[in-house]
Amino acid sequence: MRVAQLGSGTPEIAVVAGIHGDEPCGVRAIERLLADRPTVERPVKLVVVNEKALERRVRFVDEDLNRTFPGDPDATTHEGRLAHELVEELDGCLAFSMHSTQSHADPFAIVNAMNERTTELVPRLPVAAMVETGTFAEGRLFSEIQTLEVECGLQGTETAAQNADRLTRAFLTAVDALPGDTVTRELPVFRLTDVIRKQRADTYEVFVENFAEVEPGETFAAADGDEQVAAESFYPVLMSPNGYSDVFGYAAEKVDVLQSTTAAD
Score class of each variant (00 low, 15 high):
1 M>L: 13
3 V>D: 01
5 Q>D: 09
8 S>Q: 15
11 P>L: 04
13 I>W: 03
15 V>S: 04
15 V>T: 01
18 G>P: 02
20 H>M: 05
24 P>C: 07
26 G>V: 02
34 L>M: 15
40 V>A: 11
49 V>D: 01
52 K>S: 10
64 D>V: 05
69 F>Q: 06
75 A>K: 07
81 R>M: 08
84 H>L: 12
88 E>Y: 07
94 L>R: 05
97 S>Y: 00
97 S>C: 15
102 Q>D: 12
103 S>P: 07
104 H>T: 07
105 A>Y: 09
106 D>V: 13
107 P>Q: 05
109 A>Q: 01
111 V>T: 06
111 V>Y: 00
112 N>C: 11
113 A>Y: 14
115 N>F: 06
118 T>S: 13
123 P>V: 02
124 R>G: 12
126 P>E: 06
130 M>F: 15
137 A>V: 11
143 S>E: 05
146 Q>H: 12
148 L>H: 00
150 V>N: 05
150 V>P: 14
154 L>G: 03
154 L>T: 09
156 G>P: 07
157 T>I: 08
157 T>G: 08
160 A>E: 03
160 A>Q: 02
163 N>R: 05
166 R>G: 02
167 L>T: 01
167 L>G: 01
168 T>W: 02
170 A>H: 03
173 T>K: 11
175 V>L: 12
183 V>L: 11
189 V>I: 08
194 D>E: 14
196 I>T: 08
198 K>S: 11
199 Q>G: 13
200 R>A: 10
203 T>D: 14
212 A>T: 15
216 P>I: 05
218 E>D: 12
218 E>V: 09
224 D>V: 06
224 D>N: 14
229 V>L: 10
230 A>C: 12
231 A>E: 15
233 S>M: 11
240 S>K: 06
240 S>H: 08
244 Y>H: 12
254 K>D: 06
254 K>R: 15
255 V>K: 12
262 T>N: 14
